[in-house]
């Protein structure tokens, strides 16, 4: 049994690959080998000898699917991979589109469908939530400054101005909104999302959907420490039926398949939970779920293989993760090996 995992970039904005592998390795019935697929010769996970046996450089999916597939097939010739678990946003569309092609060379994957990936888009999520009666911040799409004038009067400042892919700013008045509108549109294009600003604190859910509407498991977490990049550096597992139920409902309505992270904002005045975003993969804090009793990465591997998995009904509340940094020492030879040969052998 050989599993390949992407996203070993556990840097200050970490990819989920290392915690996913850690989860898989710790499963009682896991007996196999894990290899890493990396985009950069300096992905830290590749140099951590206990993470993956070998690490292969692969091209970015933005370079084209044929080339991407070719490199994966080339690695498959050597490794005979059974399952690939992709963990990064930017590669999800590629794996969704390559799913059957990969299957034809014997590789199974667990990845949401293209439709599921599209619905969770920043410009689409609001209408999805509206349809299924899930609270989400009110959302308006603007493609010109004129559209900003036409925003309904019930939308009060401050508002959040968001790009279609990335970037978000809080605008306190029309002038700020207009200036952020121009700033974001020049970078990310249209439409621009104007969103109701909800003051409160953020809660997250890590979950796994089985593709038939069922939720294999779901764990809620409150961030305890947030870096200046907005990433949780410490968090605690909490008991919160409401956000877990909303996550289950979304998974059910979409028949979501694969890992997901649901981001919620809880209004500090009304205590109401608003769904902000769905990330189409496990979060980087997924190991907290494992430690709290739900080994979702391992369940994902089993799902990918078409095995039946038991659903997790509960988890331990009050488990804390604290991320830390550690300077791994290696030799320039290792860097040369991966740069020149495209593979780093840790055995």
């Amino acid at each position: 049994m050989k599993i390949a995992v992407t996203g070993l970039n556990n840097v200050d904005n970490p990819g989920p690959g290392v915690p996913v592998i850690r989860g898989i390795r710790e499963a009682d019935d896991f007996d196999g080998e894990i290899i890493g697929l990396i985009y950069d010769a300096l992905e830290p996970g590749a140099y951590m000898s206990e993470v993956a046996s070998r690490n292969y450089l692969i091209p970015y999916p933005s370079g084209g699917l044929d080339i991407y597939f070719e490199r994966l097939s080339q690695i498959n010739e050597i490794e005979k991979i059974d399952v690939i678990i992709p963990t990064l946003d930017a590669e999800m569309f590629a794996f969704a589109k390559l799913k059957s092609k990969l299957e034809s060379i014997g590789i199974k994957t667990l990845v949401p469908t293209v439709e599921q990936l599209t619905i969770r888009g920043k410009d689409k999520l609001f209408s999805f939530c509206e349809k299924y009666n899930i609270s989400a911040p009110k959302n308006y799409l603007a493609s010109s400054v004129q559209d900003l004038y036409k925003l309904p009067s019930e939308l009060k400042y401050p508002v959040v101005i968001k790009g279609i892919f990335y970037d978000a700013y809080i605008a306190n008045n029309f002038d700020e909104a207009e200036s952020y509108f121009r700033k974001i549109s020049s970078k990310w294009g249209y439409p621009i999302i104007v969103q109701e600003y909800i003051k409160g604190s953020e809660y997250n859910v890590c979950a796994l959907g089985d593709g038939e509407g069922g939720t294999v498991g779901a764990v809620a977490m409150k961030k305890l420490f947030i870096t200046d990049k907005g990433k949780g550096w410490a968090g605690v597992s909490i008991e919160d039926d409401e956000i877990i139920d909303i996550s289950r409902k979304v998974i059910e309505e979409l028949n979501w398949i694969g890992g997901a992270e649901f981001e919620f904002m809880r209004d500090e005045e009304t205590n109401k939970n608003y769904l902000l975003e769905i990330n189409p993969r496990f979060p980087a804090w997924v190991y907290l779920a494992v430690a709290a009793g739900q080994n979702l990465p391992h369940a994902a591997v089993q799902l990918a293989q078409g095995k039946k998995v038991e659903t997790f009904e509960s988890y331990e509340v009050g488990k804390i993760f604290i991320r830390y940094s550690w300077d791994l020492i290696t030799d320039i030879k290792k860097f040369e090996e991966i740069t020149v040969k495209g593979v780093l052998n840790n055995e």
């Binding site: 985009y39 950069d40 300096l42 450089l57 692969i58 091209p59 084209g64 490199r71 495209g342």
Partner: peptide, 17 residues
């Protein structure tokens, strides 16, 4: 020159065949 994030024929966006 090797830059992080812009690696080589394996890692960067490669040329079309």
């Amino acid at each position: 020159k090797q830059h992080s994030g812009m690696m080589n024929k394996f890692g960067s966006s490669p040329s079309l065949p």
